[in-house]
Design a protein around this nucleic acid. Structure first.
Lengths: 152, 152
DNA sequence: GCACCTTTGTTGTAGCTGCAATCAATCGGG
DNA sequence: CCCGATTGATTGCAGCTACAACAAAGGTGC
């Protein structure tokens, strides 16, 4: 491989949306997990908890769509939070469906975690600058939602 | 919890940079993996391959920093690619260090994957629009690099 | 009612990820 | 030269992620 080609590859490697998004997600997760640790929750757990609290009672399918997460992953992640008594699952309107809802303990954990989450948000805002922070928040959401479009 | 509070929570859940970045990373990874599948590589594998090809010979530590990936994760991911004869590891200048480099098979796989990667990039660009696509690419890179700053 | 398809959720398998602990090699100060 | 701190890499453990295959329930057309 010629050195010019090598240079091109080096540069273009960081033009990869996927690679950069995965990198950024790893970094941001580490940052938020650090802030959330005292609250006993991880960023991934908080996401699911937040989704359930907002929409409850909510089906596995709905969580899957809301968080752009594979349905089998939802099953496992919810099971994990159930084991810690943060969530509970009951029968849905449909016998196929399950209704996930939050427990008292789960609500308390959520409320306890919120200030830590806010601190993490502030830290990220400070590191990026307010405009870029907002742009990334909305851009990432748009990207997550664009999945169905691009996949079609 | 009052319904007004609930509404607030529903809205602010998607203000979470971490949650949104993780969502987006999942979606984008699925998209790229779909495009890359015919080439026999995943997006995660291509990232490592790209890094090694650009910088080789490169230490585990250097890959870890370049890709904002935990060093132990690098060890495993590289081992995985070695098992498929895409990468090879040798002794580094320092007896502690290891030098990772690409094999002929690895280079061929990389070259074969590039058109598929480009197609994925085009699909993402089309879904987001050119300006937003570019903004996300550079924003994600900045976010990944901002890690050390924010963690300090 | 039955055959067929869709929807919803779970399980098997496999890979990605990070933290803590560990080991080996190196470096720096005495 | 030796001791302690640092650096580079690995391993054990645990959790996140997705795809494929499956099972169960519901819906549709005949």
């Amino acid at each position: 491989m010629h050195s010019s080609t090598l240079e091109t590859n080096r540069r273009r490697g960081f033009d990869c949306l996927c690679g950069n998004m995965r990198m950024a997600a790893r970094s941001v997760t580490t940052l938020y997990d650090g802030y959330l640790a005292p609250a006993g929750l991880t960023a991934a757990e908080l996401s699911v908890l937040w989704c359930v609290i907002s929409v409850q009672p909510v089906s596995m399918q709905r969580i899957s769509e809301t968080l752009a997460m594979e349905k089998s992953t939802v099953t496992r992640n919810v099971a994990h939070l159930c084991a810690r008594n943060l969530l509970k699952v009951g029968a849905g309107t449909d016998a196929r469906m399950k209704h996930v809802s939050v427990t008292r303990i789960g609500q308390e954990a959520f409320v306890r975690a919120l200030p830590h989450w806010k601190a993490a948000q502030r830290a990220a805002t400070k590191a990026l600058g307010e405009p870029r922070f907002k742009a990334m928040v909305t851009g990432a959401l748009r990207l997550a939602r664009a999945r169905k479009v691009a996949a079609a």
